[in-house]
Amino acid sequence: MSNTDRTATSPRVSRRPGRARPPAGTPESEFDPRPTTRHRRVLLAVAAVIAGTILALYLVFQGSQVSKVQTRAPGTGSGYHHVAGQPGAGAAAPEFTLASSDGASVSLSHYRGKTVLLYFQEGLSCQPCWDQIKDLEQNQQALKSAGIDAVLSVTTDPAPLLAQKTTDERISTPVLSDPDLTVSRAYDANAYGMMGDMRDGHSFLLVDPEGTIRWRADYGGEPDYVMFVPTAKMLSDLARERT
């Protein structure tokens, strides 16, 4: 066969550097591994959607963190660093019924008509928390002068162990057991402890006779993790900040 005949019966496939070879029998016009303009636009659109979703989730997360706490100005009030979480002043106090260290079941509604100080604390492993309760009991007259009729403490340990601890510490204040953190989470009191969100921090809430929160102070959060506040100092913050 002459060169002329070979050229006529065997068309050349033009190949450019860096391009993949097309499968046998595939016209070159139907095989182009390079992304088309349409493909690039689709990829850019998908990337933009992913980036926008990530940004939106970040902003929601940041917003939720900001809504949880309102930092107090340093150096004011008692001098003990604290923030006010949510639910805060003006909100209805979430209702609860919990087993108490004295063997009874205690509901917040039982105290309707009285002003109650709720004290969320870390529990058995936190001796300063029990010292806090003792200090509150030793300053009952000051609490009464501040208009507080009763004190309830809430923590996450089992009621029988709390009963033994209150006996050992000679504490008469009811300490309520919230082992599944249902109440702690309702009050977001587990956001301020040294043990992560599995235990409460060191939070006080004042609930008025109608069941409305009038004051809140979370002393247990970063960076100081305050676990004991003298009652007089706590009451000075209460007097300055209550609504």
Rank of each mutant, 00 (worst) to 15 (best):
F31S: 10
S105W: 07
D237C: 03
L176P: 01
T212F: 11
S105M: 10
S107A: 14
D149P: 08
S153I: 09
G77K: 00
H39V: 09
D224L: 04
T7K: 10
D208A: 04
E122C: 04
M194S: 15
L98H: 05
D224Y: 09
V154N: 13
P33E: 05
A89Y: 08
A45C: 04
P128K: 02
P27I: 05
T53W: 11
P128I: 00
D197Q: 07
R12E: 10
G18W: 14
V83D: 07
P35L: 01
R21S: 09
G88F: 11
Q62T: 07
E95D: 15
M227W: 07
W130T: 13
A8M: 06
T9W: 12
G90V: 12
T167V: 14
S145T: 10
L161K: 15
D180M: 04
S64M: 13
P128S: 00
W215I: 03
P74Y: 07
H202M: 04
A232E: 15
R112K: 15
L98D: 01
Q127P: 12
K134N: 08
P158F: 05
S10Q: 14
S100E: 13
V66W: 05
D102V: 04
L205E: 06
V229R: 12
N190I: 10
P17R: 15
Y119S: 04
C129H: 10
Y219L: 06
D208E: 07
G123N: 12
T156P: 06
E169D: 08
K165P: 07
Y80E: 07
P74C: 03
D178T: 02
S236R: 05
R199V: 10
L143F: 07
L43S: 03
D208W: 00
K165R: 15
G63S: 11
L124K: 06
Y219P: 12
E30L: 11
F31T: 10
S2F: 06
D135L: 02
P35T: 02
I50G: 01
M1S: 15
T36S: 14
H110S: 15
A232D: 15
D218S: 14
R185L: 09
E210W: 05
Q121V: 06
Y225Q: 02
F228A: 07
L152S: 08
K134H: 10
T212H: 08
D180L: 04
L176W: 01
D102Y: 07
V49C: 08
V116M: 02
G25H: 11
P179K: 11
N139G: 00
S14R: 11
S64H: 12
P209V: 02
V49E: 05
S101Y: 00
R112Y: 05
A217Y: 02
R72L: 07
S105E: 14
E222D: 09
R214L: 02
D224W: 04
M198D: 08
L136N: 00
